[in-house]
């Protein structure tokens, strides 16, 4: 079997008496989309936090491309090829759409320690940013102030910023949240292509998208992974049906 690009080994994180992650072991293999589903409060955000570096697990380890990154802060993990999108858009709202994309390109392919030449006239940086905007269909919005974008367009910009980084792994926290039917269909098509560039760990509530995209699904309930398997296996799993899907499928 191929080496996983991203792996968590029995990571555990408690907040007081609450075990938000309870010995969570997951892996993400090249070329796949691995979806994490689970009811609200199952510990999905805590898990993403530990994978991206915002939170440090109490025990267990996180491996990125075979390297133990458990103790590394988010910016170092990002430099090593981990790109994430946020559940609640984290964008420079006063800046233009293009400037937000440039920021991503800057982190991955440029140095911020340049003080004189305008960032907008840095050709390689700008081409990278514009290519990412084109892929998510935001080219025409490039000069607009980010605060003026619709909610859906901001979700797309989140993905575009991750794209500019040309990462080894995408970690996406509910990218479809708040998108309309059309929006999620378009983003589903985009993620479907993206998995061939870098595997995607996808936390998502939109079950249509999850079932359409995921190669594997892990179900998280009360901080524990209660099942991991293909779409069919998860649909057929009794424990999952009881705990989460409620027998509706």
């Amino acid at each position: 079997m191929t080496e996983p690009v991203l792996e968590t080994r029995a990571i555990t994180k408690s907040f007081g008496a609450l075990k938000a992650s309870d010995a969570v072991s997951l892996d993400l293999r090249p070329g796949e989309i691995h979806a994490i589903i689970g009811p609200n409060g199952a510990g999905k955000s805590t898990l993403i936090g530990q994978i991206s570096g915002a939170l440090v697990p109490d025990s267990g380890a996180v491996f990125l491309d075979g390297e133990d990154v458990t103790a590394l802060p988010p910016q170092v993990r990002a430099r090593k090829g981990l790109a994430r999108s946020f559940q609640i858009s984290q964008l420079a709202m006063e800046d233009s759409v293009l400037q937000n994309a440039l920021l991503g390109a800057l982190g991955a392919g440029g140095s911020p320690w340049r003080f004189f030449r305008p960032a907008l006239s840095d050709r390689p940086l700008r081409e990278r940013a514009e290519a990412a905007l084109a892929r998510v269909g935001l080219t025409e919005q490039a000069a607009r102030v980010t605060a003026e974008l619709s909610h859906g367009q901001r979700r797309l910009l989140e993905v575009a910023v991750a794209l500019t980084m040309a990462p080894k792994v995408f970690v996406m926290d509910e990218p479809m949240a708040g998108l309309g039917t059309e929006g999620s269909a378009a983003l589903t098509r985009l993620l479907d292509q993206l998995r061939h560039e870098a595997p995607i760990l996808l936390v998502e509530h939109d079950m249509d998208a999850v079932f359409a995209l995921a190669d594997r699904i892990s179900v998280l309930v009360y901080g524990r992974v209660i099942a991991t398997g293909t779409v069919e296996e998860i649909r057929a799993n009794r424990a999952v049906q009881d705990a989460y899907l409620g027998g509706e499928t």
């Binding site: 570096g53 910016q75 946020f86 984290q90 800046d95 800057l106 982190g107 500019t164």
Partner: peptide, 18 residues
């Protein structure tokens, strides 16, 4: 650009590696 973004969305700046 990076400094200005760090004021508005520090988590984003970290997430791109700065």
């Amino acid at each position: 650009l990076a400094l200005n973004a760090a004021r508005q969305a520090p988590e984003r700046v970290q997430a791109v590696g700065l």
